[in-house]
Design a protein around this nucleic acid. Sequence first.
DNA 1: GCAAGATACTTTAGGCTTAAAATACTTTCC
DNA 2: GGAAAGTATTTTAAGCCTAAAGTATCTTGC
Lengths: 167, 167
Amino acid sequence: MEGNVALDAETKVTESPGDHKDELRLWLRLLACTALIEREVRSRLRERFDVTLPRFDLMAQLDRAQDGMTLGELSRRMMVTNGNVTGLAERLVAEGVLSRRHAANDRRSHMVRLTEKGRRQFRKMAQAHEQWIADIFAGLAKNDVEELLALLGKAKAAARSALGRKS
Amino acid sequence: MEGNVALDAETKVTESPGDHKDELRLWLRLLACTALIEREVRSRLRERFDVTLPRFDLMAQLDRAQDGMTLGELSRRMMVTNGNVTGLAERLVAEGVLSRRHAANDRRSHMVRLTEKGRRQFRKMAQAHEQWIADIFAGLAKNDVEELLALLGKAKAAARSALGRKS
DNA sequence: GCAAGATACTTTAGGCTTAAAATACTTTCC
DNA sequence: GGAAAGTATTTTAAGCCTAAAGTATCTTGC
């Protein structure tokens, strides 16, 4: 609380009032880093499996749910709108990788799940995907990976709390 | 290179062959973190300034170029396709925040730059944007911000090198 | 039981994004 | 100087994404 007279001399240099440049740089770097990798992943998914990232993402959510889940649950987990999931699921059903049926108790709800074909396809893609990511981060020391994980965890928590803790 | 007999006992526990789970978790967390913030920024830009993130991004690139730049340069910096910039710029010109003219020497090229109106608008948005980001990361210690910056720098470099150093 | 509100999903209109093909111009190389 | 190759941009077709409005079904409170 006190003792800042001594600190002043040190902090003044880098810290003008209302200076949030580091946070801004952090955000831009986070964005650039993600965009770089995401573009590559999208491109490989398209080239090698003829699938889009959103479809892969949807299948990934379903891969863990043996009994499928409702469209609403899916949209919450994917953090996208309901309307978005409607269209995505429609295309995947048409491709035969998803099946769809009414929920048991609630006729408003629709459950979707991977078909056997879908699960097979997804497992193959997921394996390749994991290897791509491993290769992309191969130049990063084990230690750095762990620190990044921890710090991003903190960042996510900070952001969530700043944004009102929704989700 | 050698001495791994002693190390084995320690590493074996967490490190099965072909285990890239941490890298995958890192990627998923990076993605989630970015998506969380990006959605919020998009939403605020739309609500408070009636502008989309891509338009804001394009204006940000131009804000630093007094004399404007070509569409090609813009698409390289934004890391999107040419066709994308064509449409984006078209809408911004229609709104009166961008002006467009032929390049001096090359009749294939088109230069775009912010109009005075565009620059005024952008500055206002940029200021709010910087504050939003500061608030979002407010729960993060100064130290954490700096470590994250450094580690993300490493990660970006690693990714770039793994992806063949393009860009 | 039934009206009012909530919930699950779909539809719509509009903008973003890409890859691939097309157009217009410039440069290179004989 | 003129063909061939390269470069800058636009167009096209298809998919992703959102907010807002619409439809169908459930739940609540009386």
